[in-house]
Design a protein around this nucleic acid. Structure first.
Length: 171
DNA sequence: GAATAGATCCGC
DNA sequence: CGGATCTATTCA
């Protein structure tokens, strides 16, 4: 298991979103295999939080790839993203699904992922490349995945920027 | 200041 | 299908 470096997160966001399938995220003592992601890319993407420019909340998205972006949604759930691309270009990948192989539990949904790991807004803007308890490793290979529109949004539904890895193809 | 929509989840 | 629950952002 080798820790992912800066280069990984500086790839084009759609590639990062796909390449994150099968990667293992580590937070504190917990770990799990990422199998579902969504890409949010730049100010031309109406579903991207940064579409309307730089605000206190979207500041992280404009920063250097490899940092965490955590926000509260609907007053009760947190969503974890990994910022991508170079400084100045706002983009991130939402972690929608994590698989816990030992118990074959699927955390299906961004709120459940953060709830399990105990991730909240205090973990926003963490540099995953230079952190000893919050990072991503090489993980496993997921041979197949499907692409669909992103979930829960009302704009940008024409883009197939949700990636779902086929966990069953790995066992 | 007030209004509103929101990258969710659960239960009926 | 609606309720929970809060806040970032927009509008006045």
């Amino acid at each position: 298991m080798t820790k992912l470096t800066r280069d990984f997160f500086l790839q084009p966001t759609l590639e990062v979103a796909q390449n994150l399938l099968g990667k293992e995220m580590v937070f504190g003592g917990k770990r799990g295999v990422i199998y579902e992601t969504e890409a949010y890319i730049g100010q031309e993407d109406p579903a991207c939080h940064a579409a309307k420019g730089l605000t206190p909340r979207t500041k992280v998205m404009f920063g250097l790839g490899g940092h965490s972006y955590v926000y509260l949604i609907y007053g009760m759930y947190h969503c974890l993203n990994f910022v991508t691309e170079v400084e100045g270009f706002p983009a991130a990948v939402l972690i929608r699904g994590v698989w816990l192989p030992e118990k074959d539990i699927r955390l299906n949904g961004p709120g459940k992922v953060c709830q399990y790991f105990g991730i909240s807004r205090m973990h926003n803007a963490v540099d995953l490349v230079n952190h000893s308890h919050f990072y991503v490793t090489s993980g496993i290979t997921i041979p197949f995945f499907t692409q669909t529109p992103r979930i829960g949004i009302r704009q940008g539904l024409d883009k197939l920027w949700r990636f779902v890895g086929d966990i069953t193809s790995t066992r």
